[in-house]
Every structure is written in C-alpha cells, then in structure tokens.
C-alpha cells in the first residue's frame, strides 16, 4: 500500500466517520446530540480543508515530517521499504501477542511471546530467557501479587487444564 493511498484512505475515513456521527447525532434527543452534532458539523469542513491543504502541499513533501509540539516527526528511515517490512512483522507479532494472552493467559502468553520476539531478532539465547523470565516475575509479583490484579487465565489453558 503506497503512502499516498494510505493517506487518502485516512482522510476519506475521517470524512466518512464525521458524516456518520453527524447523521446519527441528528437522530438523538437534543440534549444527547448537542456535542456530537456541533463537533461533527465543525469537523466535516475542517477535514475537507485539511485534505485540500495537504494535496496542495503534496509536492513539497512537507506532510511527512510535520514537526509538532510534543509529537515527534517521522524520520526518513521510518518510511523506507525495510522499515515497513519490519513494521509488518511487528504487527504480526503484536497480533500473536494479543492472541496468546487471550488463549494461553497473561502469565504464559506474554513471556512466551517476548521470548519469541527476542530470539527472532537474534538476541543472545541466555539474555532472551532471562528477560522473558523477568517479564513473568513482573507480571506475577508486580501485578498479580503486588497490585492484586487478577490476571486472566487463557481460554485454551482453562479448557485443557481446568480453571
């Protein structure tokens, strides 16, 4: 997916979202609709303006590195082909992280996925095991015992081994 296409999709999604919130807002009782309707009616022309300005400036390539207060700019190394390949792998790993947390539970799923990430990135074997073990310790002693947070069991582990 090219950057231009991705940018267009983002802009159009925002336009669609604000149109939807405006239409839904108009169907609500007055009191509940005040903020959504007011906000959506302001957002629609502003989004159109933002997209217009962006396309006008497209040739200047300024939108890529929009420096902002407290929001650091995207560097050129982050938009290279290699960078996107790394990001794709990260997304796959992140999805697996969430899935394993759900299926295997936090105490097994999260340290396991940390270990897989570290080994896949060719980190030393011992260091990877040590860090994964540290994650397990933080989860168990820090969150489950220290903060008395009931970390959920996995759907799969509960099914296989009981609650």
């Amino acid at each position: 997916m090219s950057l231009v296409f991705s940018r267009t999709v983002l802009g159009l999604s925002l336009l669609a979202l604000f149109t939807y919130t405006l239409l839904v807002g108009l169907d609500m009782p007055f009191r509940a609709s005040m903020l959504p309707v007011l906000a959506s009616s302001l957002a629609l022309p502003l989004t159109a303006l933002a997209l217009f300005v962006e396309y006008k400036k497209e040739n200047q390539k300024s939108s890529q590195a929009d420096e902002s207060s407290g929001d650091l700019a995207v560097s050129q190394s982050e938009v290279s082909v290699d960078a996107f390949r790394r990001v794709r792998y990260f997304f796959i790993w992140f999805a697996c992280l969430l899935a394993s947390a759900h299926l295997l539970g936090f105490l097994i799923g999260l340290p396991l996925m940390v270990l897989i990430y570290l080994l896949a990135n060719r980190e030393p074997y011992r260091l990877s095991i040590f860090l994964s073990f540290m994650v397990l310790m933080i989860l168990y002693w820090g969150f489950q015992k220290g903060l008395v947070l009931p970390l959920p069991e996995g759907v799969l582990t509960t099914m296989l081994f009981g609650g």
């Binding site: 925002l14 302001l42 957002a43 502003l46 989004t47 303006l49 933002a50 300005v53 962006e54 400036k57 300024s62 939108s63 929009d66 420096e67 902002s68 207060s69 407290g70 929001d71």
Partner: peptide, 11 residues
C-alpha cells in the same frame, strides 16, 4: 500549534 497544517490538528 501542533503542526504545519493547522486544520489537521483541529480535526
């Protein structure tokens, strides 16, 4: 004040 395209920030 959070970018060059001010409308983006407002949106």
């Amino acid at each position: 004040l959070s970018g060059k395209n001010k409308a983006k920030g407002l949106v």
